[in-house]
């Protein structure tokens, strides 16, 4: 629920060719959680961020960044 956090989940999903539902199942959250993270409505916990990073085999910083850090 913050616009301060940017994320590249959609880009990573496109690269891995998986849907929101598949990603949600893979890391053990609901599809709604993934969709709201993607649009920046929901700021995920550290655990979810780490699970996403592990799934995409990337660092958390590659997926998430502060909006004003660009």
């Amino acid at each position: 629920m913050s616009s301060e956090l940017d994320n590249r989940i959609r880009v990573f999903r496109a690269e891995h060719r998986i849907s929101q539902g598949e990603l949600a199942n893979a890391i053990g959250v609901s599809r709604k959680t993934i969709s709201t993270i993607e649009v920046g409505r929901y700021v995920p916990s550290t655990v979810i961020a780490l699970k996403l990073a592990r799934f995409f085999n990337a660092s958390v910083e590659e997926i998430f960044s502060l909006a004003n850090s660009k």
Binding site: M1, G28, T33, Y42
Partner: peptide, 12 residues
Amino acid sequence: KDCQEPESFVTE
């Protein structure tokens, strides 16, 4: 126990 998932948008 995963069904008590505390980390989700709906829980928030």
